[in-house]
């Protein structure tokens, strides 16, 4: 009798125990974990970059569910659920990092292509500009001439029209920072020779000053005046005299830059 009663009690107790455990009841930690794992599993980037942490999160979630529903170990279930949630979040963060890095790499490639394009565009532009400056190859280096627009008769003051060619020259010199430059001033043949000599020196100097104002180190530039020597056009016409009132840039390049090299080819 006693024994039977005990058995009954035990069975009843077990049943009560079972129904009393929160087996049907949802564990909030488990629900959070389930959501986090589902979010990671639905993330395309996770499948591309973070499969292993995703698998870890799924394993931990299964273990958490077992701990809750079968082992009835709340602390262990909550712990495993937390681990599952974190693994899932780590998977998403790692995937976002990898995907971001991959996209950055793609943008970087496009940027390189575009920069190359921009650079060759710049070189083209520069070549076009410089070809207007009548490049000549001499024993010393490349000679670029800025004529016509620079100076009025009997003046060492740069005209406003000189700004554009001077800007181009300055940007060319900035790109070829290793080359020394000699700036030579010339005049037309009108007026006394000694006066023209001085005038040509002042002209060369005002161009050197303009270059310095455009950021070219004065240490790279030497200045010389040659008066009415070496005319490039007959002094008998006004047009010819305007061309003779000029400044020449002699680029004393040990390593003649590519642009100049190509320009030589054009000139020949």
């Amino acid at each position: 009798m006693n024994r039977r009663a005990l058995t009954c009690l035990l069975v009843a107790a077990l049943l009560t125990a079972c129904s009393a455990t929160p087996m049907q009841q949802e564990l909030p930690a488990l629900e959070r974990a389930r959501q986090a794992v589902a979010a990671a599993a639905a993330d395309k980037e996770v499948h591309g970059y973070a499969t292993v942490p995703l698998l870890r999160s799924q394993d931990a979630l299964r273990a958490a569910q077992t701990a809750w529903t079968q082992e009835e170990d709340r602390a262990r279930a909550e712990h495993l659920a937390y681990m599952a949630m974190r693994h899932a979040q780590i998977a998403q963060a790692l995937a976002a990092e990898q995907a971001g890095a991959a996209q950055a790499e793609l943008i970087m490639e496009q940027l390189n292509v575009l920069q190359l394009q921009a650079r060759s565009h710049q070189i083209e532009e520069l070549k076009e500009q410089l070809s207007k400056l009548e490049p000549k190859q001499t024993a010393e280096g490349i000679v670029l001439t800025i004529g016509d627009v620079l100076f009025a008769f009997d003046s060492a003051e740069l005209s406003a029209a000189a700004d554009a060619p001077l800007d181009k020259l300055a940007s060319f010199l900035r790109e070829h920072a290793n080359d020394q430059v000699r700036i030579e001033g010339y005049t037309d043949s009108v007026g006394p020779m000694a006066y023209n000599q001085q005038l040509s020196e002042r002209r060369a100097q005002s161009v050197a000053d303009a270059m310095k104002a455009r950021g070219i180190a004065s240490g790279r530039m030497t200045v010389a005046g040659y008066g009415e020597a070496n005319p490039v056009a007959p002094n008998s016409t006004e047009a010819g005299r305007a061309r003779n009132r000029r400044v020449e840039f002699v680029i004393l390049g040990a390593g003649v830059p590519e642009v100049i090299g190509e320009l030589q080819g054009n000139v020949r």
């Binding site: 681990m83 990092e97 890095a101 950055a104």
Partner: peptide
């Protein structure tokens, strides 16, 4: 749990930096 918390913090920081770099490069482009 602390280990995974820390790893998540690290991964989130790395993701943030990758994202910031991507945006910066995109703007430059």
């Amino acid at each position: 749990e602390a280990t995974l918390d820390a790893r998540l913090a690290q991964a989130q920081a790395a993701a943030y930096q990758a994202q910031a770099r991507k945006i910066e490069l995109g703007e430059t482009l």
